[in-house]
């Protein structure tokens, strides 16, 4: 079992533990005794308050360390090329169909909704710009990431979680194989390669989806549609989308692998139940974090 990095009572103990040694000086001792009463009274609340602040911070720190370890171990020699390719296949290649499907429908619905809104101002001609910009800047990275969470993120958490509870990760450690390098690094590398590609695919399919509804169904001239797409999108938009997709790749793999890797430290369920809990929490947490991160990145990029 991996050593608990920060034992539960560590922080509380460090802050509140009174010295076992009583001071010899009588005046100081009296003063100490006077002081203990209010501390005892508020100790519980203070502890709770402290824990509320410390726990999430500590958790975030742990996740960050976990990611950094995994990330830098990608580059240790020999680079695990075949494992990374496997992960690219699993995260990227196998997600293509679902990305195409969701991309097409997102673009189609954007086409209809955009047409409806724009036609109120008589500017249906701008539909291409509306669809392309909203896809490339926003919808593409976020929706692609969420689809990948559903497909690959949950699988990562479950697979690693099961490896943990069946002692396979311990077995790796006994063989002197770094389990983070062996299990986590290829996934991070695979995700960093696949996410931008999937996002790009999502954007392109979405734009064609918008063309389907906007032009074929609602009758905007294809020339105007694609002309507007081309003229409105600048490289900065595309770059912004890619930055997002890189960040999402990091967030998704880190959260999902972290949850799986530390399944055994969960307090609510053990064994199969523990795996199910960590898979659920991996999916929920990473979806929420994607939306939060999206907001933060957008506000910085604009």
């Amino acid at each position: 079992m991996v050593k608990n990095w920060y034992p539960e009572a560590y922080w509380a103990g460090a802050i509140f533990k009174r010295s076992d040694k009583q001071p010899n000086n009588r005046r100081i001792r009296d003063k100490c005794e006077q002081m203990t009463t209010p501390i005892d009274f508020t100790q519980k609340q203070l502890q709770t308050l402290g824990r509320l602040a410390i726990d999430p911070t500590r958790h975030l720190g742990r996740i960050a360390l976990f990611f950094l370890q995994g990330f830098f171990l990608i580059f240790t020699l020999p680079v695990q090329v075949s494992k990374i390719v496997q992960q690219v296949y699993f995260i990227g290649m196998k997600s293509i169909s679902i990305i195409c499907l969701t991309g097409a429908f997102t673009g189609m619905v954007l086409g209809i909704q955009g047409y409806y809104t724009l036609s109120q101002f008589g500017s249906e001609g701008l539909l291409g710009a509306a669809v392309a910009l909203s896809l490339i800047r926003e919808m593409g990275p976020v929706l692609a990431a969420i689809m990948v969470i559903a497909r690959a993120g949950s699988a990562m958490a479950a697979e690693i979680g099961i490896m943990r509870i069946s002692e396979e990760i311990d077995a790796l450690e006994t063989m002197d194989i770094n389990s983070i390098r062996f299990l986590i690094s290829p996934r991070i590398a695979g995700a960093l390669i696949s996410f931008p590609l999937l996002t790009a695919l999502f954007d392109v399919v979405g734009i064609f989806g918008g063309y389907l509804t906007g032009s074929l169904l609602l009758g905007i001239s294809p020339g105007i549609y694609f002309g507007k797409v081309e003229s409105s999108v600048v490289m900065a938009d595309v770059n912004g989308g890619f930055v997002k997709s890189f960040v999402f790749a990091v967030v998704v793999t880190t959260i999902c692998c972290f949850r799986g890797y530390f399944t055994h430290l969960g307090t609510e369920g053990f064994g199969a139940k523990g795996v199910s809990l960590s898979t659920t929490s991996a999916v929920v947490t990473s979806c929420v974090l994607i939306l939060v991160a999206d907001y933060i990145i957008t506000s910085f990029l604009l």
Partner: peptide, 29 residues
């Protein structure tokens, strides 16, 4: 590296073939 450990519940890698399981410590180390 001088150690080997045989687990009570075997702790074999379920998603690898038997051959790959046995070969793993040699391939990695």
């Amino acid at each position: 590296r001088k150690f080997s450990y045989m687990f009570q519940n075997t702790a074999l890698f379920d998603s690898m073939t038997v051959f790959d399981n046995v070969a793993l410590p040699l391939r990695e180390n």
